[in-house]
Design a binder for these strands. Structure first.
Lengths: 363, 363
DNA sequence: CTGAAAGCGCTTACAG
DNA sequence: CTGAAAGCGCTTACAG
């Protein structure tokens, strides 16, 4: 079963045992100063004369010295590492992860990635986060047991929810405005002149989905319209095929709200390739990169990753600096990105450099 | 410009300053043993009686104690952290990253993610990797300056290339068999009866692309066939639109080898939506999840992520254990996954539970 | 502004 | 098998 690997080996030309990195003492000796001085040269705001500072920096350069953050953390109590945990790298998470990792690195933080598969893999545990004494944990796109949340509190590790929120009100969160997104998608579809609606939710009991659904249904209720039919997908493309199929076998809605872009794209494919339907409006949620690909050209509600990240980083640094910082729940509004997968309303479409968007006249 | 956030704040119910995690001394006191005993209870193979071990573990449990890996690393010289650096989370990398992160976590390692945007972001530096004294660095999908490689060697941090290889022969690597992939794609297309070929390479001077190209061209040369026309794309979907357009304006090849799946999908879209071409064979490389989506149904050469990961983890642990381990270059063969984006050869197609594959009769 | 010294939370010879 | 002690590479009062 296992593939035959072509392996090419080569003996190293004699390499000695692993070299040891230079320490502050090495630098101190070379620079002719005390080890304290070396430390001061590398800590922001420490009292040190420009002259000795320069001497130290030169010696450090020569020895390739770099302060050992791990040793430093023993004293300062800060590791300058923040953990990020997510359950899966779907179509949306990678953007978030790379954006966060980049931002955090800019800010001088290391990023400890803790993937939790959720299937065979054990859930992330308190040991995972305490072992490395991370300064804070960003929980992206997934929930945590409240037991875990409590353990983190006891261990003094601040948690921050990103993308989704949680049932624990004492934990800060940053999310897109999922309710507003669902609501305005309903408005968009109704403005497009549709009368027969279905929506496909996700299997996961995930708060963003619930909010999207609540918002979507709220529009119909508010306007005295009949409640759209509901179908339930799994969160992957493949997991969306069956429910889409079931939907089209049961009825022919003219407008479909998919609670995620991937569900929307799968629905589009089932409609076209299995049922030969082309005059159909399908809209998604999140505006993942693939939504813009011409084969789908999916109209969708954008999750403003950039703004959400800024809020996240703000809260993060605040809570690291001050453990007693107030809990904050930030909701960042996005907007409807209009493409070709759904019929256009007669009014409300605006065009700018990034493409077309739609804003309801009745907010 | 900045969005108006809806912010909800809440004063915490009086929380005291950040709690301090329990230390080995706390546990020792509670268990009535020495601090050394606590340490031994937590280190594999240390000499300790089952009885004291149990006492220690109980006390630890009660105090929520967890050994501080950072403090431990000062003594052992191992942090149990491996770094992963990649330039961008494109359509392929996320799979790799999550698979690696999962595997490494299983093996008891933390994963420090170091994204390097490459655009505005500064390249990853030696400081990034030495600061946290990581045990090893996996360089995925991107190259490094040889200066950086040397600095890592001097700092005693083993490097391992994943997905791509490098010009530095002294650094181990694990890659798909890109040459074989390119070669067999040529064979596949020729077996499909095509006579007019183009291929779209990637802008990046990345070794996997070069190998794919070399393999592809080698087939034509070996069989005395005319050399296919070459076009060059950027690595994203958007960056592939213009070269595909240019290609179809200049000629109408009947078969196109895209050096990555994303280039292939963009080519398919340009052909269909801009030029109305439908009877065209396009094949890609990597077998990313989106290649299977019905709108593209892209025939492609699979990069066997699982097998590549196993090799990577093997090499990694070997080199962490023994810095003088020999350099290894592992090449893992994949296979052609047959879908609907390209004409089928008359023979050589096999079907198994995962779908159809093709194997050349003339290898 | 500077250095000597204590101490962060561990592991590991060393002696018993 | 066990404990006292040294030491990993740092930061930070403390005294000068």
């Amino acid at each position: 079963m296992s593939p035959v690997w072509r392996v090419e080996e080569k003996r190293m030309n004699e390499r000695h045992s692993r070299p040891k990195p230079a320490t502050a003492i090495d630098v101190a000796n070379l620079a002719g100063v005390s080890q304290s001085a070396v430390s001061r040269a590398f800590t922001e705001g420490a009292s040190i004369s420009p002259k000795t500072r320069r001497k130290v920096l030169e010696a450090a350069q020569a020895l390739n010295y770099n302060v050992n953050f791990l040793a430093r953390s023993l004293i300062t109590g800060k590791t300058n590492i923040v953990g990020i945990t997510m359950r899966r790298l779907n179509q949306f998470n990678p953007q978030v992860l790379s954006a966060l990792a980049l931002r955090l690195r800019e800010a001088g933080y290391g990023v400890l990635l803790m993937m939790a598969d959720g299937e065979e893999q054990p859930e992330i545990t308190i040991d995972d986060v305490t072992r490395y004494r991370i300064d804070a944990l960003i929980v992206a796109s997934t929930d945590l047991s409240s037991k875990f949340a409590n353990q983190c509190r006891d261990a003094g590790i601040p948690i921050l929810f990103f993308i989704r929120t949680t049932s624990e009100p004492e934990i800060s969160s940053v999310t897109a405005d999922n309710f507003h997104g669902g609501y305005s998608m309903a408005a968009f579809l109704v403005a497009g002149g549709h009368e027969d609606f279905s929506y496909i939710s996700s299997h996961e009991i995930a708060s963003p989905n619930q909010e999207r659904e609540r918002g979507f249904l709220a529009y119909f209720e508010k306007h005295g319209l009949p409640c759209p039919r509901k179908y339930v997908a799994h969160s992957t493309f493949e997991g969306s095929i069956a429910p889409a199929r079931e939907m089209f076998r049961e009825s022919r809605p003219s407008a479909i709200f998919a609670l995620s872009d991937v569900i929307g794209m799968a629905t589009l494919d089932v409609a076209r390739f299995e049922f030969g339907l082309s005059d159909l409006s399908v809209v998604g949620f999140s505006n993942i990169p693939a939504a813009a690909w011409p084969s789908y050209s999916l109209t969708t509600y954008s999750q403003p990753v950039e703004a959400m990240m800024n809020a996240t980083v703000d809260i993060l640094f605040e809570v690291i600096r001050n453990p007693n910082a107030p809990v904050r729940h930030v909701t960042v509004p996005g907007k409807i990105i209009v493409r070709n997968s759904a019929r256009l309303p007669a009014t409300g479409i605006e065009e700018d450099e990034h493409g077309r968007t739609w804003t309801p006249s009745d907010p």
